[in-house]
Each structure stands twice: as structure tokens, then as C-alpha cells.
Design a protein around this nucleic acid. Structure first.
Lengths: 230, 230
DNA sequence: TTTGTCGCTATCCAATCGGATAATGAACTC
DNA sequence: GAGTTCATTATCCGATTGGATAGCGACAAA
């Protein structure tokens, strides 16, 4: 009956009396118990990430998510309150995990832009191959066009873009990257690094190639270098 | 209960006694009636394409699809038999429409490879901007990993790849394209052309840019030229 | 040991899902 | 005009959905 199935706007301010937020340490330190809860929480988040990425928000059922996580489906409501909130926590979990995997050498401060860019591309391609669900979830999120896209944009994505733009423009000025619109260029680089893993099943079906093979990954890195750097 | 929710394998050979196939003309030429049916069929296909692309196979409901098409949900079963079959017909409809939009100048026979490639990129970017749901549906299809991915691969996608590979390799040999693995290069070009429109809502939310603006499209075309051609 | 917290489950609920069946009624054939 | 076809709908079905409620029972504090 035309009920709005899109995600509700994330009105929660993470501090009311909602069923507890993600940040690790619970108020009272009851060691064993809190650790168990945390592991359950992570299991649900990982399962939800996989299901959401593959079947979309509405296609993924909380029952299947909880089953893959080894708990009953009541847990999701108990911990996250609703499917909407679970989605948001999954997005947060995704970027938290990504930031945790950024290597410590990723300080653009004192190194040459090209060296830094090559390091970043190499890392990002490895990350995308390790976690193809990242790109898949982002595509789902973008296609969904719900109000939480705005939320994710200003919460996680925009800062990442603004972080990379200055270096890209410096490299453009030095004729090291093609002299085209920065946003356009960034998206092309991003897509060139990530989409091959997002669409891995298609490439396997069409060309019979396993893009996750380490040798293929190495070829892919070289391809991105050769294509964009000059 | 681990019920298999994935699409069933397309066992139908399009000729048994299933509820009639897509090809335009019905056996008996009953002018007005057949035309009405055809328009209903197209309305359902267009609506289904939009819904499937945005919400995925399981997220899109046949009731909403039929409502957007202006019919009751029984029609889908009557015409297509099942949701599975509707998905397959939508894929077919998508590529049929794409081929119908390929300009007549697209004969690679006697023209310079570069001229042909530039024409193709220009056309493909326009097509992707006109129909962002194409890329979205393909992403959904690939992510789903059902048996119909194999079907679509050999039915529609592989031939398209094989069509482009020889020209790409000739251009690589002439140092007109970066000398990297062909499959990898083709996917990067493809993604560079298409993903900006697939992810248009994200770009709008993050950078506030409307990628469908004709001037932006023109800039995008130049960006792809400048990035890949040398 | 006693008491209470809280991680977790069992179970119910209304809504919606894809699909099946039977009937309607306008367009067509004769 | 009578009879037939068939595009379309109304309506039912069992299964599954996200969510709500009422606990259970292992653990921790006393």
C-alpha cells in the first residue's frame, strides 16, 4: 500500500536511551560478560555487512543475518533496536575497520606525492580485494537513495574525498596525473581500483578470471599505475 | 531454514507452453488487442527494470512493480509466469534497448581505431547517463551470484567483451592505450564511463554535483579521453 | 548463598511477500 | 448476433518478514 520502505532518517543522537551504541567499553566493566556481548555484536555486524552487501537492505532478512551470526533474530532488536539502526551501525563498522587497516606509513606529510599516491593505490587495491563487500555496500547505499545517504556522506565519505583532493591537484599541476576535473578523476581512480572486485563474479563468469589471485592483483596495481600516472 | 532464495536456473527453453515470450509479434495478428498487451508488457518491463535496479531482486516486490506499471500484480504472473522469469526478461529487454540505441556509425570496419574508440566512448557515456539503471542492474546481477549470472554472461555480456578486445589490443600495440592487461583495461574503461552515473546520488550527496548536467557529461567524456588515450 | 543484572531466546503479531485460482468482460471470429 | 478468446482483475493461500513482549538462566555483586 505504498508504505515508505526506505530507511527512516537517522534521528537518534546516540545517547538517549537507545539499546547502547557501538563504542567498545560499556560503562560497568564486567570483563567476561562484556567481552561476550562484544563478540556477539561483531559477529552480527560482520554477518549483516555480508548480507546487506549481497542482497541490499530490504533483500537481507534479519533472521538470516542472525542465523549466520549464530544467534536468534531477537538479538538484533535487543542490541540494535531496528533493522534501520543495524544498517547504520554496519556502515560505521565498515569505515572503522577500513581506517584500522590503513598502514602507519600513510602520512602524506613529508613524502613525495607520487610515492604517497602509489602507496595509497597499492593499499586500496589490496583492501578492496580483501573486502569486496565494502564497494558492494557503498553501491547499495548510493542506489537506495535514502536519507541515510546524506548521513553517510557527511559522516564518512566527504572527509575521505577532501583528504585526497589536494594531493591529486598538486599531482595534476606537476603533470603527473591527467589534467581533468578533480572529482571526475578521483571517481575514475576509485572505480578503477575497486570495481573489479565488486564485479568479481561477473568477471569470473564472463572471462573465467579469478581477480583475487595475487598475481592478478599485482597486474591490476601495475595497470592502474600505467593508466593514470604519466 | 536456509531456503534457497536465489534465482532458479533458467531451465525454460523459451518455446514450451510458458506464458509467451518477449519477441514482438504474437502468432495471430489481432491488431488492437495485441498492441495493448505489448504496451502493458513494456510498461511492466520498464517498471521492473527501475525497481530491480534500485532495490535488488528480492527487495523489489511484484506488487510495487505492477503498481508503477498501472496494472494489478496478477498480470506479472499471467505474462511472465514468475518473478524469476520477469528478471530474465528484464535483462533481455535491457540489452535489446541498448543495442537499439547503438548509432549506425558504429561500424568499426573501415575507420581508424582511435576514431571508432572515441565515438564509442562518447556514445557509451551518453547511454550510461541516459540509463543509469543499466549499470545498477548489472551490479545487482553480479553481486547476486545466482546461476542466471552465467546465463547473462554467455547470452549478452561475453559477446560484447569479445567485440571490443581486438580493437583495444590493436590500439595497445600502437601505443594509443596503456600497455596493460586487456581484460583489466576494458573493465577500467567501462567503469570510468559508467560508474559515475551509477553512483550519481552519492556524488550529489558528497560533492553536490549533478553529473547528469550536459556540461558535466562533456567534461566527463574529455576526462576519459585524456586519461586513457595517449 | 542470596539476589539482581542482563545477554539471550521463545513466541506471538500484523503486514507483506510470491504465487494460485476463478471469474469478468471487452475485443475478436464466425 | 452468438459464441469464443484472452487480457485483466479480485481474492485467497501459505510462507516469511520486521518487530514486540515476556520471560529464562548464566553470571556477578552482596
Amino acid at each position: 500500500m505504498a508504505t515508505a520502505k526506505a530507511l527512516k532518517s537517522p534521528a537518534r543522537v546516540r545517547g538517549k536511551k537507545s539499546p547502547r551504541a557501538t563504542p567498545a567499553a560499556p560503562a560497568k566493566a564486567t570483563p567476561a560478560r562484556a567481552r561476550k556481548l562484544q563478540s556477539t555484536r561483531v559477529a552480527i555486524l560482520e554477518s549483516a555487512l555480508s548480507h546487506f552487501a549481497r542482497r541490499g537492505f530490504e533483500g537481507a532478512s534479519t533472521r538470516e543475518i542472525s542465523q549466520s551470526a549464530g544467534v536468534r533474530h531477537g538479538m538484533i532488536r535487543h542490541i540494535y533496536g531496528s533493522k534501520d539502526e543495524l544498517w547504520r551501525e554496519v556502515i560505521g563498522f565498515l569505515f572503522e575497520r577500513m581506517h584500522a587497516e590503513v598502514p602507519p606509513t600513510a602520512d602524506p606529510g613529508n613524502q613525495d606525492d607520487v610515492v604517497y599516491w602509489k602507496k595509497w593505490v597499492r593499499w586500496y587495491i589490496g583492501y578492496s580485494a580483501r573486502h569486496p563487500d565494502h564497494g558492494r555496500l557503498m553501491v547499495q547505499q548510493s542506489i537506495m537513495q535514502g536519507p541515510q545517504l546524506e548521513w553517510a556522506a557527511e559522516q564518512f565519505i566527504r572527509s575521505r574525498h577532501l583528504w585526497h583532493f589536494p594531493a591529486i591537484e598538486r599531482m595534476k599541476a606537476k603533470k603527473l596525473l591527467p589534467d581533468v576535473d578533480t572529482v571526475c578523476l578521483f571517481f575514475m581512480i576509485n572505480a578503477a581500483c575497486q570495481m573489479i572486485y565488486v564485479l568479481a563474479p561477473e568477471i569470473k563468469a564472463v572471462d573465467g578470471r579469478d581477480v583475487f589471485d595475487p598475481r592478478e592483483i599485482e597486474k591490476h596495481i601495475d595497470a592502474v599505475f600505467a593508466t593514470f600516472l604519466r
